[in-house]
Design a binder for these strands. Sequence first.
RNA 1: GGGCGAGUAGCUCAGUACGGAUAGAGCAUCAGCCUUCUAAGCUGAGGGUCAAGGGUUCAAAUCCCUUCCCGCCCGCCA
Length: 649
Amino acid sequence: MIAQNPYELFRQECQTAIAGALKKTLPDIEQPTISLKKTPNIDYGQLASSLCFELAKKLGVKPLALAQNLVASVDKSRFDLIEKVEPAGAGYINFYVDFAKFSALTLKSIRKLDKEYGFVKTEVPKKVIVEHTSVNPLHPIHIGQARNPMLGDALARILQCRGHSVSRHYYIDDVGRQSSVVAYGYAKLGKPKPTEKSDLFVGKIYTVTSCIVEINRLKRLREKACISENADDLIKINKELDEWVSIAAELQEKFPVLFMALTAKIGEDENPEEEINRLNRAYEDGQPAAKELIREVSDLCLDGFRATMKRVGVTYDSWDWESDFVWTPQVNEVMTKLQATPFIFNEKGVLQFDADKATKTLDLKGKLGLSANNEVPPLTLVRADGTTLYTTRDIAYTIWKFKHAEKVINVIGMEQSLAQLQLKLALYAMGYAENADNLVHFAYNLVTLPGYKMSSRRGHYITFDEVLDEAVNRAYQEVCKRSPMLSEEEKRNIANFVGLGAVRYALVDVDSGKPVVFTWERVLNFETNSAPYVQYTHARACSILRKAEREAENPDFALLSERLEKELILNLAGFADMFIEATEYLKPNMIADYANVLADKFNTFYNAIPVLKADSQGLIDARIALTKAIQVVMRNTLNLVGVTAPERM
RNA sequence: GGGCGAGUAGCUCAGUACGGAUAGAGCAUCAGCCUUCUAAGCUGAGGGUCAAGGGUUCAAAUCCCUUCCCGCCCGCCA
């Protein structure tokens, strides 16, 4: 017999056993739902029910007495995996698994299913779009943004293993002033060829251009304020100007040549800000010259992103340009449809979506879990000049996504929770209730640096590439220290997957709702509870299997009687439970936790119990089979979060 | 002011959706283990009023209410 989820088989037997016992001893009562939980401790058996506590109260008897009665009427012989059933504590019913059979079932299943073990397929496979990363193509991806692709990619991987058809989408936000700013600077420089990694190159142009233009704008404002003798405005403007001037000084020192060149070129324009606005409008209008220019800069930046993401094993199936939704009638269609609803109002000539009215009219508060006094603020849809806003365009994009998928998961920071809620409400308002139901905002908390405020505008950021480089460097130091005998090539190779793995793991390891404070010590941790720790453990298991020089030919699984061995079997058998839960509740951090626990248990086992020098051939083979199973499951787990499982390190 | 998210050991975090048996790890500190399958490892010690208070329950870190504290959002930005 082979099972994707051995624990589930045992659970079903226990459930049937209790149901039967209830029917026999208490034929008159309605069958309660029987929940079985994993026990806190192997001594309490492997599954336990606390149903006697609830039932005893209704029946007016003692829980323990009830448990004893139920246990007495279980006919064990009808079940395969149940070794014994016992009443325990104040009224628990504890089920003990027959380890000889359960170990055989679990280890044979893992051996047989190998790369597929534990990936229980969903009964309702769907087409799913996971939109993630979607960093604006203005500057390199920085560490504050890098948690997004790590989470998004892990989600895509687990959903795919669950049997969904997953498509990874990158939404390119190329509509908006910022893109015009960088394109303006790029054009002023005469569209130079990048002399370094292209996103880094674009990022410098963006920061410097934006700074020069901003100073120019503020100076004009100041003139106006002087003329109108508005003292309050003047103070404010001067303060802002001071700040930008200090940024300019920094940038001038960091990139003197670029700064000089851009200052000179931009100086030729009477009003750079107006030039940028003109470019922006031209782009939204789809004028060929503007299209060519902005797409060119954006593509340069995206090339850099692709290279960065490839390093960590993240790829995308679709690159969706926001501008495409503006150039085609899609955004206009959204506006037409929304205007036909009773939720649009006009304030000072600007169209707004009354999100709160929509929730009330369509009775959505309960459904969406909004508290009664949660008044959802209105959403402005278009500017006075008729151009659209980000969320309006996002509505069109979302509708498009649902033409290609039944479920859409947006991996977007929690600071955009309100906008994502308004977007969802707009879908309901437009009659796309089913789509709205299947739209998920996967919100995650920010990555921050202690004592360092990252700012794209100031050019203050640590790029993801820098973090990866540093991770690989530190890993290399570590490899040299620990394994000086290896060849240079091997050292480099190991350093690479260790460093990259450490970063990926560190960014998915923490619950997505909690903030991650970025420190090198945290991200480049090579000890317990890190990718390197799990990788090392995997390599250790591989090493045993190599030295064994044989398959587990005649294993006697009944001999796996050590407590640690049983715990390991239980962990392996419960892999599918964990996987299903992580996927259904979108909790990729559970995967990392599981890997760490399994590695922990194996290392304890490794130190305490010999595999190849065990007492009998039957036991040796059983332990080889156990080691093999651990290696397979650990590898499957690491792959779920995109971390390499090495055979040596 | 309103909304959302968080508060668990000195530090970083599991556990909370679905209430169950003595609240778990790692880091740091201290004491040990490499002629034995990879020491990126293992063993042991100390460290907790689960933010505070109240409530529901046979049972609360977990559910409900109140308060405190921190972060984010409430733009004709994205």
